[in-house]
Design a protein around this nucleic acid. Structure first.
Length: 463
RNA sequence: GGCGGCGUGGCCGAGUGGUUAGGCAGGGGCCUGCAAAGCCCCGUACUCCGGUUCGAAUCCGGACGCCGCCUCCA
């Protein structure tokens, strides 16, 4: 049984599946008008981990995440740069997938682009207009939130109190400040599509509700995104589905914020803002580990210090991979439990990790258990219990892989000069010429190697 | 104004009323020719004030501080 927080209920609930053995999930993707930032990195990592974990346990996951390729921000950028909306979207979508690649976020099963679903959006809006839930103003079509009895479910507040706090600009034509735009009338020079109610383009909230239903069908299982999407975006998606008489997501979940200390973000302070930047400077796995280390609904702080901390922890994982010659897993491949064998300490570890992850995706708890097992594996090997140690190490590799973390044992290619120094040093050590051995170690270190002695002789690797 | 969250050891960060979270950094030890890697041991923390309880970081009340959402936003 998988239990997961449900934003619609404000508590952890069992994730009941529409089709047993299958999970249908929709994760709100980016609007591609700029480089991806740390927040994008977090939400993609969090839900990538959920997807991987569901898959690992044997569930068939249908994972859909969209690209919003038409939007005010895209239009603004295109006109500012004197280029087309299409080119802006293409450019930043490329950056998006490059970053996802680097992060080891697996490609979704489906990636709907908003511009490809305009016809279906027009259909939905037509239906809402017919029911008088949608209404015309001079600049477009709006949705009348008062027509949805439980509007405010995801916000956790009734309509009245939401309205009281509304900071939206007053628009005399709107029936309520909370009403949101379904369709924006075409403006000269902006992309637009034909519709019976007038040429224009869809509102953001309409895009996601249409795409998720189109690809996952009525009453799909899980709808996720960042905390800020809870209201109004997800509230409004849901409102449209309710008004259209369609069963929508059965479970809602939202991940927490990325903080960058209380300092303003700026390059001069060494704070990272763009994901692209972070990935240029650090091991991408460090961000995944950082994300896994705190609960997905808590805020996390991303600073050079916390990233560095995670990178050093990663070194221990890679040390295990080196010691046991483990093959790197994860990446684009989603691991499945049944591809590994489980018994003894490995099975026990799996069960503990599964218990943690199936209780609201408690990755910190799972990680604590994995790190403890990592020490055990090394201790067993130190004690000469090779078999047991190896079994545990293989299980650890599988479980880290289930979370999308690759353990890397491959050391850099050793050039001829370095290899000659290694050979020389082994000779010196055999001859017990410690002075010479130390001098040669110094040379290797100067060449940027980390030098370790082992039963089989000098080992060098890149730190 | 409404709704919600948070304040834990040097740092990050979990925590279901009583028994070790975990990681990083630091100290000691084992191993090693010396190192590195690895293993073992160590810090006895929980914003403050009351209360409930045999017992609270964990429940209740209050104070202080911080943050998020109510507008585009991951």
């Amino acid at each position: 049984m998988i239990r997961l927080f449900d934003s619609a209920h404000g508590q952890v609930r069992e994730l009941t599946l529409r089709d047993p053995g299958q999970v249908s999930m929709y994760v709100c993707g980016p609007t591609v008008y700029d480089l991806p930032h740390l927040g994008h990195g977090r939400f993609t990592l969090v839900w990538d981990v959920a997807r991987r974990w569901f898959t690992f346990q044997g569930l068939l996951v249908h994972y859909v995440s969209n690209i919003t390729d038409i939007d005010d921000n895209i239009i603004t950028r295109a006109s500012r740069e004197g280029t087309s909306e299409e080119l802006v979207a293409k450019t930043y979508e490329k950056s998006w997938w490059d970053a996802m690649d680097a992060l080891g976020v697996a490609y979704p099963d489906d990636v709907p682009h908003a511009t490809q679903y305009v016809a279906q959006m027009v259909e939905l809006i037509t239906q809402l207009l017919e029911g008088d839930v949608g209404y015309k103003t001079s600049d477009g079509i709006y949705f009348d939130v008062s027509r949805v009895p439980d509007y405010g479910l995801l916000a956790g507040q009734p309509l009245d109190s939401l309205r009281a706090g509304a900071r939206v600009e007053t628009n005399d034509e709107k029936r309520s400040p909370l009403d949101f735009v379904l369709w924006k009338n075409a403006k000269p020079g902006e992309p637009s599509w034909p519709a019976p109610f007038g040429e224009g383009r869809p509102g953001w909230h309409t895009e996601c509700v249409v795409m998720s239903l189109e690809l996952l069908g009525e009453g799909f299982d899980l709808h996720c995104g960042g905390f800020d999407l809870r209201f109004p975006h997800h509230e409004n998606e849901r409102a449209q589905a309710v008004a259209a008489g369609v069963r929508f997501a059965q479970h809602w979940d939202h991940n927490g914020w990325v903080m960058v200390g209380d300092e303003k973000m700026s390059k001069s302070l060494g704070n990272f803002t763009s994901l692209t930047d972070l990935l240029d400077k650090n091991d991408a796995r460090a961000y995944r580990l950082l994300v896994l280390r705190s609960h997905y609904r808590s805020p996390i702080e991303v600073t050079p210090a916390t990233i560095g901390d995670a990178e050093r922890a990663l070194a221990r994982l890679d040390g295990l991979a080196r010691r046991f010659g483990l093959v790197a897993l994860a990446g684009h491949h989603l691991e499945v439990k049944d591809d590994f064998s489980w018994s003894g300490a490995a099975l026990e570890l799996y069960e503990h990790v599964a218990a943690a992850l199936n209780e609201d995706l408690d990755t910190p708890k799972a990680l604590a258990q994995l790190f403890e097992a990592l020490s055990s594996a090394n201790a067993l090997a130190d004690g000469g219990h090779e078999e047991e140690a190896r079994e545990l190490a293989v299980a650890l590799n599988a479980l880290f892989g289930a979370l999308g973390l690759s353990l890397v044992s491959a050391s850099a290619v050793v050039d001829e000069i370095s290899q000659a120094l290694v050979n020389e040093r082994d000779g010196a050590r055999t001859a017990q010429n410690w002075t010479e051995a130390d001098r040669l170690r110094g040379e290797l270190v100067d060449l940027g190697w980390t030098v370790e002695d082992s039963p089989s002789g000098t080992l060098i690797r890149r730190p």
